[in-house]
């Protein structure tokens, strides 16, 4: 296997591993949505406030997952390791 092939293959595996970061935000957003739903059930009048707070919290929770996505994209499309060969 050539050096370049090894780097490309390991980058592909690394990109896949980086996307494991998606687990955390998934769980977090699910918890936020669940509590949001129960809050609407308890107080239907405050639905719009609860919705906007929930979306804001979910968006912040999503950031870590997107960092993983950014790393995966960097490994796939702008690979810095290939320059070191």
């Amino acid at each position: 296997m050539s050096d370049r092939g090894l780097v490309l293959a390991c980058s592909a595996i690394g990109a896949g591993l980086a996307m494991i970061a998606g687990i955390g935000p998934g769980i977090g957003q699910g918890i936020a949505a669940g509590y949001g739903a129960s809050a609407v059930g308890r107080n239907p009048g405050a639905k719009s406030d609860i919705m906007s707070t929930m979306l804001l919290g979910q968006a912040v929770a999503e950031t870590t997952g997107l960092y993983g996505l950014a790393i995966a994209f960097i490994l796939l499309f702008a690979n810095p390791l290939l320059g070191k060969l």
């Binding site: 950031t63 997107l66 960092y67 994209f73």
Partner: peptide
């Protein structure tokens, strides 16, 4: 950076 990465990552995905 977190603001722009969030928007970028979502739309790009």
């Amino acid at each position: 950076f977190s603001l722009s990465l969030r928007l970028f990552g979502n739309v790009l995905s």
